[in-house]
Amino acid sequence: MSVTAKSLTATGLVAGYGGQPVLRGVSFTAHAGEILTVVGPNGSGKSTLIKTVLGLIRPIEGRILLDEEDITPLSPSQRANAGIGYVPQEANVFPNMTVLENLRLGVDFIQQRPAKRFDRRLEEVLDLFPEIRPKLSTRAGLLSGGQRQMVAMASALMPEPFLLALDEPSAGLSPRNAELLFKIISRIARTGVTLFLIEQNTRLGLGASDTGLVLVSGEVKLSGTASDILGNPAIRRLYLGGA
């Protein structure tokens, strides 16, 4: 199935904002075409991890590989061109621009591969997000939170990235919308994209994932298949409210 997806591997990441590192030796692999979700309590280093993957923070130690390629020295925009798409948690659209313009900006300055006509790629992406098709000429700022999230994901997918990184995609969404979102995420994975996400909603996030990673105090507490983690009694007690 996964013809274009690439794997993401991190080895021994130590990173933080000067002084005390937040991440203290984090390693994981997201295999090509699978969904990896990172969960953990607030302050566990989830956001630091996604920022390090995207190149917004330079790690003090450790390497990040996209398949075999070492992307650790690349800048955020170089990583975007290497095939990493990113959907930030907040402010993830250009609010005063139309949905269509938002989607155009997805490929305006990021090399698309394989080079495809804009219209054709647009059709493919809109098939994934049928809800935004009628909104193409609406200003993105006027959409609902769920629709904005879709526009953001759609723009990130426009250049056909190998890997899509999502920062707490379900934050601020209604339970119904969050479920819908994860259905779409599974669909995206099937089109041949590796997904790397960090998530507050442990049950929903892991439920839709292949692999899970539990981060506590900047270290990997637990990793394995998502269903194993969901079944782990300690995790159930800690994050899923007993039972």
Partner: peptide
């Protein structure tokens, strides 16, 4: 409109 997102978009 959104400088941070603009840099993410290359």
């Amino acid at each position: 409109d959104n400088a941070a997102l603009a840099s993410v978009r290359g």
